[in-house]
Simulated scan of single mutants.
Amino acid sequence: MKPRKQAYPQRLRRVLVATDFSESSTHAIGRAAYLPLEAGAKLLVTHALPSRMPTEVGTRALQGTARELERVAERLRKALRTAGSSATVETHISRGKPVDALLRRADAFGAELILLGRHGAKPLRNMFLGSTAENVIRRGHLPVLIANRQATGPYLRPVAAVDADATSRNVTGFVPTLMTPGSELTLVHAYDVPLEYAVFPGLPSKERTQYQKTFKAAAERKLSALRRELDARGVPHQLVMENGGSRSIVLEFVDDQGADLLALGTRARSGVAYALLGSVATDLIREAKCDVLVVREREPAA
């Protein structure tokens, strides 16, 4: 029996938007206004203040932060009304280290997504590592959307970097939530041809081509379950496969196609900073010019 197609897309109901009042945070606020939101959805705009400050300084900081936070929230409310959304916007000031405070508030709020900006006026190597975004991904469990540039509309050209593993299924399970009706998800997969440079010198051109096709076909078979799941949910998609390194293939495709969202996954209990430091995933997050969605692998049951 064929699985029944589900309604597409599923819309967001609760989103936490982090702000430090910087330009990159402005990108996050702007993106929030274009998210596919359920009727009556709630957005929480939050900022963290240090837990220890002299009383007088702390009082002034709290009052000033509250005023600025409300101004940011009101801009978002106006943008949502312009978009015809009935979503509501609340504010919250947390105390403590930004990452700890943000993750606590996200859990208390019941957030389905954390949205934040990425500081861009830094060298590539320092743009992501050690940032709030990196630590939220590494230590949290919720999907994280990093707004890398000013939003001009909903996502129309989303791309997901995929492999035949659980992290890719988690990504393709969530990314349709951010898609606009009528848009198509492009799955990009880089496959490997073992010993290509050692084998090819001794093969005629026709046999070289067949050798490559063998491994491409194997990769397609491994991804077939992922595609069936998307078909069952009624998610329009296409698969692009290239032989070579994942980093260069994905980044080149994102740039060439003008993608506005790149989605990828990380593994549970490790995250980017532990298991993927210096790897393809971290490079993609650092270097992608579009917004980036990172979905964590689900934690195993205790």
Rank of each mutant, 00 (worst) to 15 (best):
K2C: 12
R4S: 12
K5M: 15
Q6H: 10
A7E: 05
A7S: 10
Y8H: 08
P9D: 05
R14Q: 13
V15D: 00
V15K: 02
D20Y: 08
D20Q: 10
F21S: 08
S22E: 09
E23A: 13
S24P: 06
S25P: 04
A28T: 12
A33R: 00
Y34K: 06
A39K: 05
A39E: 07
L43E: 00
L44F: 04
V45H: 00
T46F: 05
H47K: 08
S51I: 12
T59G: 11
L62S: 11
R67S: 15
L69M: 09
E70F: 10
R71V: 15
A79S: 13
L80W: 01
A83R: 04
A83P: 02
S86A: 09
H92N: 07
K97F: 14
P98T: 08
V99H: 02
D100N: 11
L103R: 01
R104V: 13
R104M: 14
A108Q: 08
A108W: 06
F109D: 03
F109T: 04
G110H: 06
A111H: 01
L113G: 02
I114R: 02
L115V: 14
L116C: 07
G117A: 10
A121Y: 13
A121D: 15
L124Q: 09
R125A: 15
N126Q: 12
F128Q: 07
S131Y: 00
T132Q: 05
A133S: 09
R138V: 14
I146A: 01
N148C: 07
R149T: 05
G153H: 05
Y155S: 06
A160V: 07
V162A: 03
D163F: 05
A164V: 12
S168L: 11
N170M: 12
F174L: 10
P181K: 14
L187S: 02
H189Q: 09
Y191D: 01
D192L: 13
V193P: 00
V193T: 11
P194W: 08
P194H: 10
L195F: 12
E196G: 07
G202S: 14
S205F: 10
T209C: 10
Q210C: 15
Q212E: 15
K213I: 15
A217K: 14
A218N: 11
A219W: 02
R221Y: 09
K222P: 03
L226H: 01
D231L: 10
V235P: 00
L239K: 03
L239M: 15
E242K: 14
S248T: 14
L251Q: 07
V254F: 03
D256Q: 14
A263P: 03
G265M: 04
A268M: 06
R269Q: 14
A275D: 03
A275C: 10
S279E: 08
A281M: 07
E287V: 08
A288I: 04
C290E: 02
L293M: 09
V295Q: 00
R296M: 09
E297V: 04
R298Y: 08
